[in-house]
Simulated assay, not measured.
Amino acid sequence: MEAARTLFAWGANSYGQLGLGHKEDVLLPQSLNDFSCKHQNIKSIAGGGGHSAVITGAGELFVCGQNKERQLGLNHTEDVLCFTSCTALSSVCVIQVACGWDFTIILTGNGQVLSCGSNSFGQLGVPQTSGGCLIPQKIESLTEKAVNVAAGLRHALAATESGVVFQWGTGMASRANRASQGKIIPSFLTAKEPCKVTGLEDVKVKKVTASSYHSVSLTDEGELCVWGSNKHGQLVSKETFLVEPQKIDAHFFSGEKIGAVWSGWTHVVAQTAAANSSSLPPPSRRLSQIRRRKKKTQDEMFSEIMESSRSDRAHLNEWKETVSKYRKEASEREDRRDQREDMRDQREERRDARDERWRQEDQRRQDATLGLLREQTDMLRRLVELQE
C-alpha cells in the first residue's frame, strides 16, 4: 500500500496560491494537512504566475490562488485561498495540468485538451473566445489525441499520440519578429489556435515543456529539440532566438539519452535516462555508513545535532530577514523586466494599430479623390452633351 503524501508550500502568497487559507507570504515550508488528509493519493502538482493546481489519483483537479483572469476555471473571478475542486471537470478524468502566467491547460484521459483563463494572446487555443474562459473549454481545433501539454508565459504546447507538436499563443511572436529582422516567421509562432510546429518532422515527440519565451520537446529517442528565446543561453545556441526547433547535441550530456526535462523561467533542467534513484542505499544504510566513516557514537551525533539546532534558532530571524529581502529584490527585478517587455510589446501593438489607421486613412483619401474625379468627369460629360 502506497504511503500517504503530504503537500508542503512556501514563498510568495499574495493571491492565496499556497492553498493555506490566507494571503501572507510564508518563509518556511508549511504542510497542507487538511487537504493531504482528505486527498492522500496526490498524483501531480503545478504552479503558474499566481495560481496552483493539484491532480489526485482519481483524476480530480483542485485549484487555488489568483483568479482575476478566470484561470482557475471555477466560473467566477474571485481569488481562492484553499484548494478547491474544479467542478466543471467532475465528469472527466484529468491526467495532466499545466499552469501558464494567467491561464491553465488541462489534459484529460481521453486525450482531449481544455483551457481556461486569459486569452489576450490566443493562449487558450480558442480564437472565437477573445475575453477568456470562466470554465475549461475544449480546444476543438486540436483533433488529434494529445499525450502531453505545457504552458508558458503567453503560449501553450501539446504533443500528440503520433509524436506531433502543436503550439498556440502569440507570446513569442514579438521577439521572433525582432530576431528575424523582417523575414517571415513560422506560422506556429503567431497562431491563436493549435498549429503544427515545423522542423520536427523527423522525430517523434513524447513530452513538451514551455517557459517565458522558449519551448522544449523531448523525443522518444531521448533527444531535446528547443526553440524560442536564447537570451540567457538556455537553448545552447549561438543565436539569440531560434524560430524553429534545433536539436541539442548529445555530447553536451556525455552522449547519454535524456529521460525527463523541465523548464524554468529562463533555464532548462534535464535528467538522463540512466538516472535511477533506486541506486541510492536506503536511509538506514546511509546512516550506518556515516557513523562508521566518522567514527562517532550515537551520543556524539545527538550532541552535534542539538548544538546545530541551537545555532540555527539563534540565526533564524536574521535568515528570515535575508531571505525576505532577497525575495523582494528578486521579485522587483522580475516585475521591472516584465514591465519593460510588456511596454515593448504594447509599443509594437500601438505602432501596428497606428500603421493600420494610416493605411485606412490613405484608402479613404484615395476613395474620396476617385469619387471627386468621377463627379467632375460626369459634370464635364453633361456639359459636352448640352453644348451638342
Rank of each mutant, 00 (worst) to 15 (best):
Q360T: 09
V94D: 08
Q234Y: 09
R154C: 02
K145Y: 13
K294L: 15
E307W: 00
K294Q: 12
R313L: 10
R178L: 04
G228C: 05
R175N: 11
Y326R: 12
H22R: 10
Q167Y: 00
V147I: 14
D362C: 09
E329P: 01
R175P: 01
A176E: 06
R285T: 13
L157P: 00
Q346Y: 15
W319C: 13
F121K: 07
E78A: 11
V208Y: 02
A158W: 00
Q246E: 04
L134K: 13
C82Q: 09
T87Y: 13
A330K: 13
D79P: 04
V63M: 08
R381G: 00
S237F: 04
T240G: 12
L242H: 01
E223H: 09
V165E: 01
F62P: 01
D220V: 11
L114T: 11
Q363K: 07
E332Q: 15
C225S: 05
Y15C: 05
E24S: 14
V94Q: 08
I185A: 10
Q271P: 00
E69I: 01
V226Q: 00
R351D: 14
R175V: 03
A159H: 02
Q271F: 09
R293H: 14
V147E: 08
L373F: 08
H315S: 13
A270E: 02
E375C: 13
S331Q: 15
D249I: 02
L134H: 12
S277D: 12
S288P: 05
R291D: 07
R70V: 03
A150V: 11
F302R: 05
L7T: 06
Q298V: 15
G259S: 02
V164W: 06
R178A: 12
P127Q: 13
W265M: 11
E356R: 06
W227V: 03
Q366P: 00
D25Q: 11
A156Q: 01
A158F: 09
R347I: 08
G73D: 05
R337G: 09
G57Y: 11
E161W: 08
E244G: 00
M306P: 01
C82V: 14
T104M: 13
L134Y: 12
C99H: 09
R382G: 03
R351F: 10
S279E: 12
K294P: 01
H251L: 10
L280H: 08
K328I: 15
A173D: 08
H267W: 11
M1H: 09
R337M: 10
Q30K: 04
E388H: 07
G49W: 05
N33W: 10
C37P: 12
S331A: 15
E356M: 11
L124R: 02
S187C: 03
K68E: 06
G65W: 03
Q167N: 06
G100A: 04
G122W: 00
E201V: 03
G264W: 14
V63D: 06
W262Q: 14
T108W: 03
S174G: 07
L124E: 04
G49I: 04
A314K: 08
A53P: 05
V94R: 04
Q181V: 06
Q96D: 10
E161Y: 12
N177C: 05
K38V: 13
Q366R: 08
A179D: 07
P283M: 10
Q289Y: 11
D355M: 14
W358M: 12
N230L: 02
D312K: 15
P282V: 07
D220M: 11
